[in-house]
Nucleic acid binder design. Structure first.
Lengths: 347, 347
DNA sequence: CTGAAAGCGCTTACAG
DNA sequence: CTGAAAGCGCTTACAG
């Protein structure tokens, strides 16, 4: 034959062995006589042989692929986690197929189906699930089919109604801790900027924050909880909308650092200073927020580690029925974007 | 048979047709009698059939996969480009396999081999090449093998010695333009913070900047060009090293926004203000830099568009010998991080 | 340890 | 339009 592409048979022929032997020599597992192995390896090298991954997957009916499905790769939160996943996968000689849903729930389901078709060993659902019953149902079916076929699934954050193993950062507790710290600083009047209420992560953080305040008998007026897109611009817009109403608040909590970055700009555009006129806090501790002026108070999540753990969990046997939970702590980091409201009056 | 995983034969059996017909009905191409097609589609849906991507790839000896190899997914520059690539790929019903080399040249070569094994339709080399002869040789061989097997390759930025089609942002021109603008502002004494000299992008930007200055008979002393890692911390460190020597400069150019972010922090830690004591400029215009205080002067690159164009180029026929070039402009954006050095003296 | 052969799950000429 | 059959490029029992 004379195709431009080199197959195992070519290598075997060049090494004067059967393709079975060539395969064994290349894969290292079974014992092959040293000189034969040597011949195969040299032939493969000389011919520039790259094993057909599909043929291999088909014949062995197994792959070393992890499918990663996230909402938006461009968001530092997700790229941080993805970084951890890729590193961990790499250490185990797994490849990662990354899919970005652009926050379209339907695409998320489609991607699971695609990963199923790829016979990925594991699927990682990065980012929280949606609180929609019909979505959960569609997703559950896909995941069941996938697991029945031998795949394993792990999620990062809470995924209501899916029954999957999850690695969970302390969204609720972290937000509550943050609330307490802010109260300790002296704040009493808060506003919250949040993403879609359909996302579990959003809910957990808002709920945690409100509960933290409730411990001090504080609550947040409903019209001071403003929803925006889960982006920098979403934060800018939501904050703008809020500030236009000139609410008597001393502290603003954005459920996401990315949104906080937008909020910071909005606050300034309204002629207010942070933390002079208004304190601002975020959540995630993505890399840039410590370089903002002022550096942002936030709740730090170990993004890289979240990714690693998800890989661990998905690849560890004993997945069983799903619903295993690996909890990771969140840590409040007070920076200059939050100050005591009293100190403001003293100026 | 009774495997937990559903194959085409199961669907065909359920629809009482041959697997050939089932295949044709599912793939939509050829004409199949309407009622048969209907039966197949329903059966597939009911059984939750997900075609085995590997079997399909093997049988049709083609895939709809694009391999993307970048240096560091966590870096906003790369994730911006990756975003564009994924979007463009999606529109063409292609999937993207992302590989991150962590700036290890050898891994880059390995990944090409891997993509070759995956029979990816196209490989995108995102990020500049290395100026190492031995690396270029190894890479060239892999790429030749890949192209001989029918694959197509496109790079983003200049890749010396590889002979591949490239989409090129105006690194050289953009940096020269920036230099001119800074000179116009009144600056005469510059320092440069740069990444590894082995990267073509780094070189292009530094060279362009120096040439821009040369037009006004200005040059930069060798000890004022400091090299650091291509990261925020690399920028911090390099700037720190530079400032420790208390050089008489009024303007600092970091070849990358990410490095500029670090440099900004370093300048402050040395008790200097930007732009009061020192002007600072970067390159790329990654999303956050306009939210810094002060907002960063930089050279804007259309990251998303770079990604799209690379996909276009790789998938467009007529690749031929490589060396097609698609140039994209870069635009200087003056923001508050640069000011006239005179205004400083007036204070 | 080695080789001949079957089989992985599809697609696609080839007949009909 | 439809089906039987070959083949994609590997791996892996099964004999030897």
């Amino acid at each position: 034959v004379n195709t431009p592409i080199v197959t195992l048979s070519h290598v075997a022929a060049a090494a004067r062995v059967s393709s079975a032997t060539a395969s064994r020599a290349l894969n290292g597992g079974s014992h092959v006589r040293a000189d034969l192995r040597e011949r195969v390896l040299t032939a493969a090298e000389e011919l520039g042989y790259a094993p057909n991954a599909h043929a291999r997957a088909l014949a062995s009916s197994t792959t070393r692929v992890i499918g990663l499905i996230c909402h938006d790769l461009t968001d530092p939160y997700f790229s941080g986690i993805t970084g951890g996943v890729m590193r961990a996968a790499d250490e185990r000689k797994f490849q990662v197929i990354v899919a970005s849903t652009c926050r379209n729930p339907d695409r998320e389901v489609e991607y699971v189906s695609m990963m199923r078709g790829h016979r990925a060993k594991a699927i990682l659902l990065v980012g929280s699930g949606f609180e929609s019953e019909s979505w959960q149902q569609a997703m559950r079916r896909e995941l069941d089919l996938y697991r029945t076929a031998g795949g394993s699934v792990a999620g990062i954050s809470r995924h209501k109604g899916l029954h999957i193993d999850t690695v969970r950062p302390a969204n609720h507790t972290g937000a509550a801790d943050l609330a307490r710290e802010l109260v300790t600083l002296g704040h009493r009047d808060f506003a919250v900027i949040t993403g879609s209420k359909a996302l579990t992560t959003t809910r957990d953080r808002v709920d945690g924050f409100l509960e933290g305040l409730a411990e001090s008998d504080l609550r947040v007026r409903a019209d001071r909880i403003v929803t925006g897109a889960f982006t920098r611009d979403g934060g800018y817009q939501a904050a703008g909308e809020l500030l236009a109403r000139r609410p008597a608040v001393t502290c603003l909590f954005a459920v996401t650092d990315i949104m906080a970055v937008g909020a910071l700009a909005a606050v300034r555009d309204h002629g207010l200073s942070v933390p002079g006129d208004l304190s601002l806090a975020g959540f995630d501790d993505i890399p840039i927020v410590s370089d903002l002026t002022p550096p942002l108070t936030t709740v730090a999540l170990p993004l890289h580690e979240l990714g690693r753990r998800a890989v661990d969990m998905a690849l560890r046997p004993g997945g069983g029925p799903g619903d295993r939970i690996d909890r990771l702590p969140a840590r409040v980091i007070l920076r200059a974007s939050t100050a005591s409201p009293d100190s403001r009056r003293l100026r």
